[in-house]
Write a protein that binds this DNA or RNA. Structure first.
Lengths: 132, 132
DNA sequence: CCATCACTTGATGGTTTCGTCAAATTATGG
DNA sequence: CCATAATTTGACGAAACCATCAAGTGATGG
């Protein structure tokens, strides 16, 4: 890529420009895209869904999310850098939690959209109601 | 990767498994992730934002989204395959439109989350208060 | 027909993300 | 201290994604 300067504003050379709240002058569309990018992985979605019912350590998360531990840690890092979760230490373990309930709301809206969409294209409303 | 079978359900060998409504037995977390993946690009976000104020041809979209035409066409393809937009032909041109208003709602919630997040991390609550 | 406009598709390097493994870090218990 | 448990970090090949260019398709007008 030579120079795809997304948006109108010229950007200051700034590090850490993936965190929301980092760069001030970055096109909003790019910041939004980064948010969605952070959500664009099944394991991260599952982690958030587990966390949406409360704080949880990495070790507790692991069997529920179903990926290897170090991989999980990395994915949690992605979520943390994106500002979606925060972590605190308690003894030897690290507890993760959702940072803002709007994240849960976002997942809820997404699910609604998906369910509507699935219902339209295939005819399996019943399946959806049955599964969750 | 040898066999990361995301989720619990074993999947039937099915083509077209990226479209919502395509595969029946695919873990919901993966389907959600695909939705977010489709949103995870600034140009696609901008395209959706333009389209949220009404149907639009590729040619009209191009200057507003600000990427090369063939690239735009490809990105619109991504949105279409994800079920977020639909397209119809009118004469020589192709008109795209948002498929479901929930998509707009999703963007709205995302924006709210981001604004809150930006306000927290950088200290510009004052800015926000100042601007109205 | 043929040229042209409006897109789409295909091919192709460059970059980013994924998933695995090994090694490093930071408490806790004996 | 030393062992062990709980996470994180680093390195690396494989896969996916991005952005550009060239070529292809399909309707419209002359």
């Amino acid at each position: 890529m030579v120079s795809s300067n997304y948006g109108n504003v010229q950007s200051v050379p700034d590090r850490d420009s993936a965190r929301p709240g980092a760069a001030v002058s970055r096109p909003l569309s790019e910041i939004k895209a980064d948010l969605f990018k952070a959500l664009a992985h099944p394991a991260r979605i599952r982690a958030l869904e587990v966390l949406s019912s409360g704080e949880c350590s990495v070790g507790e998360l692991q069997p529920l999310v179903g990926i290897e531990l170090s991989h999980l840690s990395q994915q949690l890092g992605v979520l943390r850098r994106a500002g979606l979760v925060s972590s605190r230490k308690e003894g030897a373990s690290v507890l993760y939690s959702i940072r803002d309930d709007d994240v849960i709301e976002l997942l809820r809206v997404a699910k609604g959209l998906l369910i509507k969409s699935l219902a339209e294209t295939t005819g399996l409303l019943s399946d959806l109601r049955a599964s969750q």
